[in-house]
Amino acid sequence: MNKSDLKLIIVIILIAIIILFMVAIFNNNSNKKALIYYDNDLVLTIDLTEKEKKEYFVDGYNGVVKIITEDGKIKVDEEESPLHLCSKQGFIDKTYETIVCLPNKIVIKIVSSKTNDLDTILR
């Protein structure tokens, strides 16, 4: 083994460490998203990392469902249903929380690559 071999080994180790660091940093982005399902199909994905207030409209079974996101949280603002259960629920922001509009067949879930406190919630 000569000097240039040793240099090669050191360079390789450095490159490997840099890649590992980059992967670690990349994985640290919380990457929070809201997934909106209509009747078992994913119809819309909303990035929740933005702080600004935004409005979205999704077609539900009974009509248009208005969804608002703000500050990493999401809620159903207006919808057509007998009891308005899902618009009464208000904002959710945790991955184990779900908004369910059964009359409109709309389900909103939050996913995030960050590890969470709870994996699921029993209702």
Binding site: M1, N2, S4, D5, L8, I9, I12
Partner: peptide
């Protein structure tokens, strides 16, 4: 390169 047989093998 000036690598020895070991360096070449690593490559």
């Amino acid at each position: 390169t000036k690598l020895s047989i070991i360096g070449v093998s690593i490559m």
